[in-house]
Amino acid sequence: MKKEELVIKNTLQMTKEADEHLSIYATKNSDCIKIKQTIKDKEEFDIRWPFEEDIDRILYCKSYQRYVDKTQALSFFRNAHISKRSIHVQWVSRIARQIGRGLNLNLDLIEAAALGHDLGHAPYGHVGEKALNEILQVKGYGYFAHNANSVRNILFLERNGIGYNVSLQVLDAILCHNGEMLSKKYIPDTNKTINQFWREYDDCWHKENTSKKILPMTLEGCVVRISDVISYIGKDVEDAIRVGIIKQSDLPKEVTDILGFNNKSMINRLIGDLVIHSYELPYLQFSNEVFESLKCLLNFLTIKVHQHPVLVKENAKLIRMIKQLYDIYYEELTDLENENCKIKTFVAKMSSTYQSNDPALIVADYLSMMTDSYVLAEYESIFLPIQHNEII
């Protein structure tokens, strides 16, 4: 037997054995369903396991590279240690893998979904998302939600509109990751079909609040969903303390008595409690006391941090800035006589299928792909006067 045949045989055997050792509630590698039908060269051999391919496609896509210049909740504070989107997805991946290992789930599926869950986030996080959501409603297109836009990025925007062939299970976990929705129990929708996935994806764009209603099809998707909450809630508190919005002593006693005072203790308690109370079950759940404490912390964070007067004032400026840019880009895109503009150059590079999209959605794509600093540079270039040296 040739060495190549031995490697192929060994890889397939390892995959089969790995599936046999997973929890009965885990997603098996043999269950992986690629969303697009592609034909590989018969001579080509890929040593990666099915969901490992998804990890690599996400890691090397342009949307992932843009994480580095997209911030989290505190967009306008100049501090190197304020959470950025790039490190957030790594934290989600690490936390989710810890939970997944404790429950003996498919770690490759978890990692791919965790790393890709925010690919479609607009610049300035949920502030940019809110602006684009309001714009698309005014335009009569529908709604903008970063979870659906993350799926859109990897499938329909990457590689100039060709997209990547990613698995149904990973895409579904990304679509259903909603980290703003807290539940005591996370039960996967295990009967979900590929047709249902597409309906839910479409509904996210055209039916209000769909993102708050849909459930992951896998237990791994549920793990990523709760890991999103665990990863940001303690860090947002620490970031807010670091910039002076709140003090550690402001934290409710109901929180500190159960979860502790800092991000490390919060993460440890939440992961441990979840694994203990979900072990060998077809769903995830917290204990009553930990869930109530977590719910209290989330409410505190919303009121005292995310709705803090300083953030509300500055976020209003960011929303106004994004809306003004959108209006300029939309005008340029729909102006038949204006051929010399960046957005038309962008569209010209995309596939013919992409070019047939509604202009309202194309402009939303164009803006949502931008990083924070690029949006600011564009705004300054378009709306602020340029300082010239004296002409002699």
Rank of each mutant, 00 (worst) to 15 (best):
K28S: 13
A173W: 01
E238H: 00
V224R: 07
I8K: 10
N288H: 12
I99Y: 06
Y25P: 00
Q137Y: 10
R269L: 11
I245Y: 04
K84T: 11
V312H: 03
E254K: 15
G128S: 04
C204R: 13
K342F: 14
I39M: 14
H121Y: 12
A26Q: 00
A18T: 14
Y201R: 02
K2A: 04
V237P: 09
I24E: 09
S287R: 09
Q72I: 04
E208D: 15
D31R: 12
D46Y: 03
W198A: 06
L376V: 11
T256H: 00
R85W: 08
N178H: 11
L270S: 03
S183T: 15
V243Q: 07
T210Q: 12
K349A: 09
E332M: 14
S167H: 11
I55H: 10
I8S: 15
L376T: 12
S93T: 08
A360P: 03
V305M: 06
K313N: 05
R242K: 04
D108C: 00
L251F: 09
E380W: 06
V347P: 01
R97I: 01
V305A: 11
L12S: 02
P309R: 12
G142F: 06
W91T: 10
L157V: 05
A173V: 08
K342Y: 06
N263L: 09
G140F: 11
L155R: 13
P123D: 10
S227I: 03
V275I: 14
L155W: 02
K247I: 10
L336V: 08
D118H: 05
I47M: 07
Q196T: 15
V347E: 07
F261Q: 07
D108M: 00
I386W: 11
R57N: 13
Q169P: 14
N147H: 15
V255N: 12
Y201V: 07
E292D: 05
L384P: 00
L59D: 05
I241C: 04
G163F: 04
E289V: 10
L301W: 13
I246F: 11
F45N: 00
D46H: 01
V127W: 07
I8W: 07
Y232E: 12
K349L: 13
I246S: 02
C204Q: 02
G179S: 00
Y232G: 11
N191A: 15
A145F: 11
D172W: 01
I392S: 15
W198E: 04
I245T: 01
L12W: 13
T256W: 04
I362C: 09
S23G: 02
R101M: 10
R152A: 05
D172S: 04
L284F: 03
L318D: 10
N209D: 15
F286T: 00
I392H: 13
L115C: 02
V363N: 09
T345A: 11
L182H: 04
E129L: 03
G102A: 08
N133K: 12
H388I: 11
E5N: 15
E254F: 13
L281I: 08
V312L: 02
E4M: 09
C222Q: 10
W49N: 05
L132A: 06
Y143T: 09
K28L: 14
N79F: 07
N191M: 13
F300I: 02
